[in-house]
Write a protein that binds this DNA or RNA. Structure first.
Lengths: 352, 352
DNA sequence: CTGAAAGCGCTTACAG
DNA sequence: CTGAAAGCGCTTACAG
């Protein structure tokens, strides 16, 4: 039809090509793409056709540069992709891709030097993301920097982590979960319940606070809190220590992996689970149903929280919600999340 | 110094601002940034100073648009972030961030309609990534599409998955690992070893092929291959079936999670591990050392492979390597990766 | 409803 | 070694 170059170089078509083929102005094509303003149906149709024929896909790059806002969501999180974070990423990805957005994932290694870290953050933010998510923000350099560098007018959502005042933050019902797990253990006849907390946890509205609340409400002694790292081997050590006390008949571990570590520690000093000591986990990690004994735990839907966070950003951009963005949200339903399996039972006879 | 607007709007500084402040042309600043051509030291210094003062960070967007290549690595993988993939992502992220590159993560859901999927792929590719990685490519629509859409001149690296001829692809020594695991089981006195393969595995150069080779070399019967899905519950079912055969005294599971499932299945029909049946896993997932019994397994360093892949791309861009990019690479060292733990032992007396 | 034109912040021949 | 200028592919006032 038209005089193509001999080369026939298959250059990726641009908005110009579409405009030319459709016989309209670039502006119109742009409007069509963003369905801003109303175009005549006939025009719309011609543009649609041209796009189809050329297999045209707008350049996110040019778009981002011209509009000063690109369709990407920047996701910052710690450098260890733990079970929960992984689930969130899946949710974020799914929701973003459904909306045609791309997600830039940045893992902030807390041991990296601040200068380098700032560089990374700035670079990521230089694409003018339309939204930013921090998964598991901590009171550390990384989270702080991101918080500081993100422009005030771009939607920012935090997922879990430590509570940062004045920010939109999503939480699961950790407190409630801790409460229910502890209550369940108490109802089995245990006099009290020990808790092995996950690292870097706040003291309120967390698994830990729920545990404490349940004990206090039941008039049980609140035993000393045990802490551990993300390294499962440390949990084994904690389990060993707990196994050496005879007042320990029930343990609520901060998550399922820690529970497994604790169980190994208990075994190593001759305690059986659940005959001698009951152990519950948290999260309902797939391994919770596979281990022997299988783990009593609290189900969490991380994927859902990732979707929720992304939708919050997308809605914000679409012009909905605006007051909602400054508060803490709790997501997930609190019913039927307690999953009772083999690792919890009544205490041994002599302890009742 | 200069007449700033009353607004004092803190606009993000651009290359123009730097040029102005340093008293040089934009071109020079650009050259400085990309250290193309040699600038006079004094000039360099002035530019550096201006950058510092303004806290200038180049826009990845503009850069990508102008250079027709952006400093981002597109990572495509399946929608389930399994243990191995997660590790790879960590490695890719670490290596990319060290080089100042951003990584766009895209999870391709195989149940999504092709049109939508293509849209996602095209969009992601529209930022002109400087490199593309497909983690666990499969013979499916997603991988195929990416393979087809990526421009010939952008470095593409595949990690694991099915072998795609003519592509640069990284593999771990799965075959060797399968071989060693099987050999270990045989050396314990088992007459043969059953294998439960991971889904979508090729027949050569995989855990499965190593298993088969070890059996054949030892002159052992090659029992029927069992397959399972990524859902651990299916592995439990397989374990149950295996437990019902009396010729089963050793099982090599495709990965650690499958091993746990198989063990549960065996228990459910009254077989103990390792007393009645030995079970080995693969990967050295953290849970392998936490479960009871702890799992004999083959250690994999997924993070390392992620770093390797990224470096391959980065090197390619830097102008090194070019022949290397068309072959299959094996990464990881084959020594000391066999980890023997509690789940494997000699067969019961009557089976020897 | 629709176009022509300026501009987003860079890179890259092209001259000097 | 260094600048002026065109161009990357879009969006967005500004006119009509």
């Amino acid at each position: 039809m038209n005089e193509v170059s001999h080369e026939n170089a298959k250059k990726t078509p641009s908005i110009n090509d579409v405009a030319k083929l459709a016989g309209v102005s670039v502006s119109s094509v742009s409007r069509y793409l963003n369905n801003a303003a109303h175009l005549r149906d006939e025009k719309k149709h011609r543009i649609a056709q041209a796009i189809e024929m050329l297999d045209y896909h707008p350049s996110l790059l040019a778009r981002g540069l011209a509009a000063n806002r690109s369709k990407t969501i920047a996701l910052f999180t710690g450098s260890k992709l733990l079970y929960g974070v992984t689930g969130c990423i899946q949710g974020i990805e799914a929701a973003a891709s459904k909306a045609g957005a791309v997600v830039d994932v940045v893992l902030l290694d807390k041991h990296q030097e601040p200068g380098k870290m700032r560089q990374t953050i700035k670079s990521t933010l230089s694409v003018n993301p339309c939204g930013v998510i921090i998964d598991q923000p901590r009171y550390d350099t990384g989270s702080e920097m991101v918080l500081r560098e993100v422009k005030k007018d771009v939607p920012l959502v935090l997922i879990g982590g430590n509570r940062i005042e004045g920010q939109c933050q999503l939480f699961t019902y950790d407190d409630h979960g801790g409460y229910r797990i502890t209550q369940h253990l108490l109802s089995l006849g245990h006099k009290t319940v020990f808790h092995v907390a996950v690292p870097e946890e706040d003291e309120s509205q967390t698994r830990q606070s729920g545990w404490r609340r349940a004990l206090e409400e039941a008039g049980a002694v609140v035993p000393p809190l045990y802490r551990t790292s993300w390294d499962p081997l440390d949990a084994v050590e904690v389990g060993r220590k707990l196994g050496q006390r005879d007042d320990v008949t029930a343990v609520f571990a901060g998550n399922d992996e820690i529970a497994l570590g604790v169980i190994r520690g208990l075994y190593s000093v001759g305690k059986r689970v659940p005959q001698d000591v009951s152990v519950a986990g948290f999260d309902n990690n797939p391994i919770a149903s596979l281990s022997i004994p299988s783990l009593t735990t609290w189900r969490q839907d991380f994927e859902h929280i990732g979707i929720f966070a992304t939708d919050l950003i997308l809605d914000q951009i679409a012009g909905n919600l605006d007051t909602e963005l400054k508060t803490a949200h709790y997501v997930g339903d609190t019913a039927e999340q307690l999953i009772i399996r083999e690792s919890t039972a009544a205490p041994p006879a002599q302890s009742r």
